[in-house]
C-alpha cells in the first residue's frame, strides 16, 4: 500500500481528525458509562441503544450554542487558546504507530516531536485562562503551568531512560524491539521498569489534567477553571483536546512499555489489522484505568501535587535513570567476562 505524498497527507488528516473526534465523543460516552457503573447507576441510555447516540446529541448541542465572547476578554487569545490545545494533540498522532505499517510519518525523532507538541498544550491553557479575564481562570492557568512544569521533568527523565534502553527515538522501532510475546515488553525488561511505568503513567495523568490531579479545573474550587468563560464549541474544543491528550498519553505508555501493536503471545497474530486491534485494546485498557482512578479518588491539592513531583517522582526517576545506565554499561561487562 503506497500512496503518493499529497494523498498520504490527506489520508492522514482525514483519518486522524476522524479518529480524534470519534474518540473524544465516544470516550465521553464510555466515561459516563464507566462512571455510572462504578457509582451503581446506569449512565446514558435514552438516546439510541445504550445511549450510543448521546455523544452525537451532545455534539449538536455544543455546536448550535452561541460562542459567547464576554466583555473584557482578550478576543485573540480567547479564540486561539482552544486551538492551541487541540492542534498539538492532533499533530502528535503523526508519529504514533497504530500497526506495523500504519503510521503517518515514521520519523526517527518521533518521541521528541510528541513532547515538543505536548509542551505547546500548556500554552493553550495559560492563554485561555489569562485571556478570559476571570480570576478563577487565572488561578487555574497558574496552577496548570506549575503542574505541567513539575510533571514534565520526571516524565522526560523516564523517557530518557527508555531511550537509553532502546537507543532509538523512533516509536515504531521501539515497538518492533518488543516483539515476541509479553515477556519481551519493556515493562518486564528489568525490575525497575514497572516503577518507571508507574511514574510515566502518573505523570501522564498530571500532564493531561486528569483526576486526581485535575487542579486546573477543580470544580469545587475554581468553577470550571480555565474554561469557565467558554461556551459552545469553545468549550467543546478544549474538551476534545483533553481527550486527545489522554489518548496520546496512554498510547505513549503502551508504545514505551506495553509493546505497542505487538500481540501479547506469539501464537496470536499482530499482522495488519490485528496490530491495530492489540494497540487499541491496550490503549483503551489504560484509558479505562484513567477513568477508574478519576471516579475513585478525591482531588489532591496543588501543594500535595508539587510535593509528589519534586520530592518523590523526580528523585526516583533519576535513580531509575542512573541504575538503568549502570546496568546497560555494567551488565555486558559482567556477562561478557564470565
Amino acid at each position: 500500500m503506497t500512496l503518493t505524498e499529497p494523498w498520504r497527507v490527506l489520508a492522514f488528516l482525514v483519518g486522524i481528525i476522524a479518529f480524534v473526534a470519534l474518540n473524544a465523543a465516544y470516550l465521553v460516552w464510555l466515561e459516563r458509562k464507566v462512571a455510572g457503573h462504578i457509582q451503581g447507576r446506569i449512565g446514558p441510555k435514552e438516546v439510541g441503544p445504550f445511549g450510543l447516540l448521546q455523544p452525537l446529541a451532545d455534539g449538536i448541542k455544543l455546536m448550535s450554542k452561541q460562542l459567547l465572547v464576554p466583555k473584557g476578554v482578550d478576543p485573540l487569545l480567547f479564540k486561539v487558546a482552544p486551538l492551541l490545545v487541540l492542534v498539538p494533540a492532533v499533530m502528535s498522532f503523526v508519529t504514533i504507530p497504530f500497526g506495523e505499517n500504519l503510521v503517518a510519518r515514521n520519523i526517527d525523532i518521533g518521541l521528541l516531536m510528541i513532547f515538543a507538541f505536548a509542551s505547546v498544550n500548556v500554552m493553550g491553557l495559560l492563554l485561555g485562562g489569562w485571556g478570559s479575564n476571570n480570576k478563577y481562570a487565572v488561578i487555574s492557568a497558574a496552577r496548570a503551568v506549575s503542574q505541567n512544569v513539575a510533571y514534565e521533568i520526571p516524565m522526560l527523565i523516564t523517557v530518557v531512560t527508555m531511550i537509553m534502553l532502546t537507543s532509538t527515538m523512533n516509536l515504531n522501532e521501539m515497538v518492533i524491539q518488543q516483539g515476541g510475546g509479553i515477556l519481551n515488553w519493556h515493562f518486564f525488561a528489568n525490575p525497575l521498569m514497572p516503577f518507571a511505568f508507574l511514574i510515566f503513567f502518573v505523570c501522564a495523568l498530571a500532564e493531561t489534567n486528569r483526576a486526581p490531579f485535575d487542579l486546573g479545573e477543580a470544580e469545587s474550587e475554581l468553577i470550571a477553571g480555565f474554561h469557565t468563560e467558554y461556551s459552545g464549541m469553545g468549550f467543546g474544543v478544549f474538551f476534545m483536546g483533553e481527550y486527545a491528550n489522554i489518548i496520546i498519553g496512554c498510547s505513549l505508555a503502551v508504545i514505551l512499555f506495553l509493546g505497542g501493536w505487538q500481540s501479547p503471545f506469539e501464537f496470536l497474530s499482530d499482522q495488519g489489522l490485528w496490530g491495530v486491534f492489540w494497540f487499541l485494546a491496550k490503549v483503551y485498557f489504560l484509558i479505562f484505568c484513567v477513568m477508574w482512578i478519576r471516579w475513585t479518588y478525591p482531588r489532591t491539592t496543588l501543594w500535595g501535587l508539587l510535593n509528589l513531583s519534586w520530592k518523590i517522582l523526580i528523585p526516583i526517576s533519576l535513580l531509575i535513570l542512573l541504575l538503568t545506565g549502570a546496568m546497560i554499561k555494567v551488565w555486558p561487562l559482567i556477562t561478557g567476562a564470565s
Binding site: 462512571a35 451503581g40 469545587s220 475513585t296 478525591p298 482531588r299
Partner: peptide, 16 residues
C-alpha cells in the same frame, strides 16, 4: 463533603 474534595462517587453511594 467528599464532592468538595473532588471525589464524586461517594456522593451517589450516600444518596442511595
Amino acid at each position: 463533603f467528599v464532592l468538595d474534595l473532588g471525589g464524586f462517587t461517594p456522593l451517589l453511594y450516600a444518596f442511595d
